[in-house]
Amino acid sequence: MNNNFILQTKDLQKSFSGIIAAENINISVKEGEIIGIIGANGAGKTVFVNMITGYLKPTSGKIHFLGNDITGIKPREATHIGVCRSFQVSQVFMTMTVKQNLMIAMSLSKKKGGQLLLPLEDEKLSKECDKILDLYKIKKQGDLIVSTLSQGMRKLLDIAMAVVGNPKVLLLDEPTSGVSVEEKFGIMDIVISALKKSGTTVLFVEHDMEIVERYVDRVIAFYQGQVICDDTPKKALKNKKVIQYVLGS
């Protein structure tokens, strides 16, 4: 495999008792790229993300990260090597406060320094945490129990929790679904510019083409488990297949 790519897949395939959810997926991602993954409902976007991050084991094919074969690794191993993610349905700690959620994420990402044994409500950690909450515009909600938040805010928290792990590759599954239209761009501005600054490679699943056009370097379109287009956003959004199978007109 080519070492110039941070992430590469080779003939990735996934089937669920006969139903093929991913087929012949060959993708190469360069470091620092921001990639939009598009496709209609059920096209296989989440399955793709799940395979890369170790939630699903591919039926066949290989995944390479920085030249190493990482096919079928466990979720936490993915996190350890720097492949992190957020979820389509946010996966957060519902009965804990927003701040506790993020502080757990932060102390787990620093577990080498013995942070795990320090009080969660550690002062230094708490200050750092406030800064991040501020960035994601959920500081006011810091002391609220997560189950009382709107879907959109949970989404933001979910993303923040993935980002504090300092990933090399970050996969976001529909980061803006559930976030209000007025807030969408503001949030994406913040998230993407922060990730660009840290040189993080980002792949995000998105249904909103305005967001795709504005933020990504490259678009990968899925249809029935296959990649039907892999191109710059300008070209991809004009691609016939994309128009027919993704944009649905």
Partner: peptide, 25 residues
């Protein structure tokens, strides 16, 4: 219980998947 490790208690009860994705077994 007040440490981050202890708080994982509640966290695990809430969402095991997320704990794994934060890199802890």
């Amino acid at each position: 219980l007040r440490s981050s490790l202890g708080h994982l208690t509640t966290a695990i009860q809430d969402n095991e998947i997320r704990v794994e994705y934060l890199g802890y077994s």
